[in-house]
């Protein structure tokens, strides 16, 4: 299944020279193909499992299901809890996406268009939020939020998720910015544009798809956030990940297969859109 490149003539020459190498080659190729096949299967299995189970009409888990139907989706629609959890998640994710763009986009000009010392450090420093152990980071945020009274507040969650969304936005937009030649700005300025005019009419315009892509990914990141909410959220604050987490912690509710499937579809569409946008910006 995982065919390698067809053996070419150079390989043949090498093989004649070293007959044992050919045997070794076959073994390594087969072993690595097998490992990749197994990994691929293992990575896909959970997603397929959840999607299949979401169309089960059984009241208990069994795989494969005994009866098929839309029972889980009906239950989902009837329970107002999931809708309100989704609503809170979205209400947090939207400002997170917007704020991450507002914070990151100006920085791009400092990183890519100035000679400010240490500007390169910002590239890595800006990513800190997503490369340090999140549970330890959550405790640190807990300490600060307790100090300034942000625990259990809506804006507290927005700010906390912002620290995770900023790196995502930075990664996507900074890569796009490095592909915009500075000559375009210079050409605009020679033609009579001020620096700000050149940035607005040329650079930001060309960056727009990447910013949109970054916004989508920042939104998804915030929507997915499940650790900060446990440390920083209040009793009444139930985001979608928190609701699912709590439900799974106290038993396996089959309705979650339906939510999970819908979330998967929505996220794949959003990420596909983001990738498409980022690609369009690259042209």
């Amino acid at each position: 299944m995982f065919a390698r490149t067809p053996p070419d003539t150079t390989a043949g020459v090498a093989a004649r020279r070293q007959p044992r190498a050919l045997l070794g080659d076959r073994f390594t190729a087969a072993a690595s193909a097998a490992a990749v096949a197994a990994t691929t299967f293992a990575l896909l299995a959970p997603a397929v499992l959840v999607a299949v189970l979401s169309f089960s009409n059984d009241s208990f888990f069994d795989f494969p299901p005994h009866a098929w139907g839309l029972r889980q989706y009906r239950t989902l629609l009837e329970d107002p809890r999931w809708g309100s959890a989704l609503w809170l998640s979205a209400r947090i994710a939207l400002p997170v996406a917007v704020l991450s763009a507002l914070v990151v986009v100006p920085t791009l000009f400092t990183i890519h268009r100035s000679r400010l010392p240490w500007r390169g450090v910002l590239q890595v420093g800006g990513l800190t939020g997503i490369i340090i152990p999140i549970s330890a980071y959550a405790v640190a945020m807990y300490g600060v939020f307790a100090q300034i009274g942000l625990l259990g507040t809506y804006w507290g969650l927005v700010l906390a998720n912002l620290t995770l969304a900023v790196p995502v936005m930075l990664l996507v937009t900074s890569a796009a910015m490095s592909r915009i030649p500075v000559e375009l700005e210079l050409a605009a300025m020679v033609a009579g544009a001020s620096r700000v005019q050149a940035w607005l009419a040329i650079t930001l315009r060309l960056l727009a798809p990447a910013i949109l892509a970054g916004g989508v990914l920042a939104f998804v990141t915030s929507l997915d956030e499940a650790v900060f909410i446990n440390f920083l959220g209040g009793p009444g604050q139930e985001t979608l990940p928190k609701a699912i987490l709590d439900s799974v912690r106290y038993g396996l509710d089959p309705v979650i297969t339906a939510i999970a499937t819908l979330l998967m579809v929505a996220t794949s569409l959003a990420m596909g859109l983001a990738a498409q946008l980022a690609r369009r910006g690259a042209r």
Binding site: L44, P46, A47, V50, L53, D224, E225, I256, M264, T267
Partner: peptide
């Protein structure tokens, strides 16, 4: 296979493995 786990999200991923 690389993308599916990203699409599932943190909680759903772990939920699926719990079932598995």
């Amino acid at each position: 296979a690389v993308l599916a786990p990203f699409w599932m999200g943190t909680v759903v991923k772990n939920y699926a493995i719990v079932i598995l």
